[in-house]
Design a protein around this nucleic acid. Structure first.
Lengths: 226, 226
DNA sequence: AAAGTCACTATTGTTGACAAAATATGCCTG
DNA sequence: CAGGCATATTTTGTCAACAATAGTGACTTT
């Protein structure tokens, strides 16, 4: 029997997942103060497991909690979102470098396949930004796990991506430059396939930097307000 | 009244702090399976707040929890410790760059003062590795907060440093190269004072890389076993 | 009339008891 | 004698009642 398989989903895990997706999807608006009992009735939970989940969410930075004053979903300014991208830049750069050094050939093949699927997705779903965002997430997810750096993957997948995705939903994938992003993805995978870690790191950093500037520009143009 | 001041320390906060320091100091050995009731009696707590704290610790990666099977302190291999240093390298590099761009003049003055204090400390306490480690922590702490990147500081101070410190205690500051480290620190501060972000990033990355290789060497030489 | 204080209410923090699950032990069987 | 199954015990997960705190509203006082 595998060790890391979770046999039973505890109520606390359930609460954690429910709340996390609710926050990411925007069902719980940022800044909104929300009582524990209301959350309980909304997700059919009891306060014990709920409080445990709240603690986890808090330490992940998705909500803030003031003693005796309730919890509220964290509201991130555009400046803070830009800071998140700066962190992603260096961390995912490292992930790409280590992935180039350590990914198995099978994983690299899977990466190619993934990109092909994304290309098809982009052709079909013109403007279906949501699915493109999911594809993008899938790509970065594979690189993070491919780095064989457990802590790095945990920090990227467990912390940063949730916060970024939270804004992706609201901005409805501000990226909006699917073809260009796909090309950049292809180049990164190429570098990884050639086991050129240095190049993979450079390309990944530039890729995320471009995504950040793109969002920044869109926000500056008006329209996009968080 | 400041907003972010915590008026009341809840039992859960207390539990969190107690457990965290116990883990960092090694009072709770890695890999050791430990029951909830034992923890309660040991820290004069009740199970409710304790469980909340356990959840937080788990999501920070300091302990692992299997449903119905108890918690155990995470045990990190030397390989994983090296991976932590790789993450530190890129993240603290970013922190140094942003600190160079954003620190106030007062903060930079304080940095200089800190380094002077470290120098005096090294002269006096020959071989008192523990205090040197604390000084090192102080330096990196100031850079992290000086970056004005809240999430970056949170990830460094709230996640990585605790895990690194956990091993510092066991290795009794494997660094063991206080003078060299101090010189590197001075150069980094110099770059920050000149507002040269690029240089500060480069020097910080090299500094952490050197620390990593130093530990690696010491471990390879034998003696140091985790 | 305005401001400050006091009491009240609603919400959170805490506690101890109860239920469910996993591990360990002992018995039975092959 | 060894291996597997069933049971028992220990430990965790869950729940509901209790206590404490902060926010709110009304009342008094200046």
């Amino acid at each position: 029997m595998p060790e890391d398989v979770i046999q039973t989903y505890t109520r606390a895990d359930e609460a954690f997942d429910c709340l996390q997706t609710a926050i990411v999807k925007g069902d719980l608006a940022p800044g909104e103060k929300i009582g524990e009992v209301e959350l309980c009735s909304r997700f059919n939970l009891t306060r014990g497991p709920l409080r445990e989940a709240l603690g986890r969410l808090e330490s992940r930075g998705l909500l803030v909690r003031r003693p005796h004053a309730g919890v509220k979903v964290v509201s991130v300014s555009t400046d803070e979102l830009m800071e998140l991208y700066r962190i992603r830049e260096v961390m995912e750069g490292l992930a790409a470098r280590q992935a180039a050094e350590r990914m198995t050939d099978d994983e690299i093949t899977a990466l190619h396949t993934t990109l092909d699927a994304h290309e098809a997705m982009i052709e079909q779903a013109h403007g279906q930004a949501y699915y493109q965002a999911e594809g993008d997430y899938d790509f970065h997810h594979r690189i993070a796990t491919g780095s064989r750096n457990a802590k790095l993957a945990q920090m990227l997948l467990g912390d940063l991506y949730y916060m970024v995705r939270m804004y992706r939903y609201r901005l409805s994938t501000a990226s909006g430059r699917p073809h260009m992003a796909l090309g950049e993805h292809r180049r990164i995978v190429e570098a990884i396939a050639q086991r050129d870690g240095e190049l993979a790191e450079f390309l990944m950093k530039r890729h995320i930097n471009a995504a950040r500037r793109n969002i920044e520009r869109k926000i500056a143009e008006g329209g996009l307000t968080i």
